[in-house]
Amino acid sequence: MRPIVCQGHTRPLTRVRYNRDGDLMFSAGKDAKFNVWSSATGELIGSYDGHTGVVWDIDVDANTTRTMSGSADSSARLWDARSGKCLYTWTTASPVRSVAFTPEADLALIVTDKKMGQPCTAIIVEIKDNVADIPEAPLNIFLPEPELTPATIARWGPEHTIYMGHENGTVSCWDAMSGERIASKKIHSGVVTDLQFSEDGTYFITSSKDMSAKILDLKLHVIKNFQTERPVNSACICPVKEHVILGGGQDASQVTTTTAKVGKFESRFYHKILQQEFGRVRGHFGPINTVAVHPDGTSFTSGGEEGLIRLHHFDPDYFRFKLDPRDP
């Protein structure tokens, strides 16, 4: 396998995402840049310029017509995916940690951080085809309780529910419209770093600095557990094969006395059902901050602390590999 290295960021990566069709890959970093790449060739298609602080989260709508970003400059922006023009800006009282479109892209979720005297806030806004029609006031605002600790990531679940991961390892579930908490549970013993849903939206994977990633069902029951010896910064569920990919790592722990010849930080592949690790690929020179998998399961992307994005197209070996004869 020959990974494609995309150099578009000068600071650590915060998020990489594929669009629904899989032909585009979006990346955001601490250098305030928000880029879009061809997932086939790795060429830079364009960038969405305008943020002045770390871009923490990004999303793209189902039709790849609009993109959205949330930044530490206390704003969330709506962009025209094709031209890069900023269509709308929501200003918030504190840095934005998460943004997400609903599948219909009629609503969006903006979650802000507990900072500058402001509590962690979840804001539901409306999206209209004509940006002029976007109402100034959000549809709903609710505050997750302080004892849950600030949310680090939030994603839409089915039927306008919202699932959040928190700093103290709790995972919570909310009704977006009423702002009521449906459920919450302490899942991890460390910060929840990422939360990604399966293709059919019936379960999701959470990753945490407690060196594990877990699969939870919609009722927050732990279905699967993937254990590692390093903090996990991101995890994604492969859509076709029964695999999950974990990315993480810790700087100090990678120090060895052997000659360090190549980027030692690895993305790790686990069998989703058997919970057993079966594959690794190295290359990053710093911890991996974000991973994403192509909707057809033919490639995956990882973004590292060193500012590099590595785009991997799988070899036939990967598709043929069976950890167990029952593997599809």
Partner: peptide, 21 residues
């Protein structure tokens, strides 16, 4: 096409697969 400043192909790097972790 890809611009050399932003995109390059890295050296051959295997995805190491094994039935034994």
């Amino acid at each position: 096409g890809p611009d050399t400043e932003t995109t390059r192909v890295d050296t051959e790097l295997p995805l190491r697969l094994s039935t034994n972790p």
